[in-house]
Nucleic acid binder design. Sequence first.
DNA 1: CCAGCTCTGGACTGTCAAGTCCAGTGAGCC
DNA 2: GGCTCACTGGACTTGACAGTCCAGAGCTGG
Lengths: 203, 203
Amino acid sequence: MITDAASTAKGRATRERIVRATAELVAERGVAAVSLDDVGRRARASRSQLYHYFDDKADLVHAVVDATTEAVLGAQDGLLAHLDSWAGIDRWFDALVELQRECQARGGCPIGSLAGQLAERDPEARAAIAAGLGRWEAHLREGLTTMRERGKLAPGADPARLATVTMAAIQGGLLLTQVRRDPQQLRIALDGARALLHAARPK
Amino acid sequence: MITDAASTAKGRATRERIVRATAELVAERGVAAVSLDDVGRRARASRSQLYHYFDDKADLVHAVVDATTEAVLGAQDGLLAHLDSWAGIDRWFDALVELQRECQARGGCPIGSLAGQLAERDPEARAAIAAGLGRWEAHLREGLTTMRERGKLAPGADPARLATVTMAAIQGGLLLTQVRRDPQQLRIALDGARALLHAARPK
DNA sequence: CCAGCTCTGGACTGTCAAGTCCAGTGAGCC
DNA sequence: GGCTCACTGGACTTGACAGTCCAGAGCTGG
């Protein structure tokens, strides 16, 4: 929590290797099923290195939460910047579905998955996850606000509510996709969200 | 898995006490954070009783999955039978939101929560969860089908897709509610689902 | 009343995990 | 060359957990 020690390039590289390895393992197996020995093996780092860079496992998990939200938002970087047009939104939705097809509907949403595992166990992590989801949602909300300004959405449309509904469709769709091992579930949920957004077009 | 031994009333009572205690603990802390000692304490049952009724922890968890899906569906019993009218659907949605308000937006959906924890770790549990969600969704699908037959939905409406979208809204809304500790998130998601269903009314 | 079972209590074992400790190593600086 | 300090290796301690074992309690049917 206090430690962030990594004043040399080598130290920073080691720290990052540890976080990335942990994030991978967490995505594969879940937080509880990852031991520090596992992390050490995958990151080629010894026990003392872990405790050199992190206070304890919880501290490491927090770093993973941050890294994961960065990774998820980063992976959509090109898309999230263009949520101010119908084409941009469609491209975004298509990319999300494509991603699930590629990973054979495994893993769900990295953030949503962490949420389910940590929300009731680690208040600090919950807050970090909420913040990450908030940033994600903000991109859409801002895109929709721009669209309303440009007359592509009705003046009475509420970008905040529409963005929230869309986030719920994404997370719910991903959960169904994961449980049913069927990317089509996300497609259906997003088609619904799309219809809802279109319904907010000006008459 | 094979064991189901409980041939006396007392035995059945003990078994049920164990499952219920485990389900409670799992809901409070998550699967990984529950030890068999915890279960024993809460259920007032000794180690050997656990292993008398269940093969191992995984077997017990499977029983919890089943019990939880039964409990979730059971809790909505009166409501799920009347999803063939707009009023019935509204009552159902209202009840879901009210439930989240009561529990202070903690815990999310018991089934969805299990899904996030087990989907990638326990194929058998994933299948059981999928089946549970399927039964849930089926109630709505059947209600919507009835409504279409009665002319309350357009002939072209697709009850299966509408039911899936609604389930996604519920699960996604619950996840946002849990992460943000705000029941209003579910309300917004369900309002969206409601609008989508209404859009499928005959012209 | 006894034989046979279901069911129960709790001690025991082996394993594995988190976290500690200290003796280093090696790159930059004087 | 030697000093310093960030960084590293791995053995060690402590505790908790899943799963085993066996002796015994208590019901039940004959």
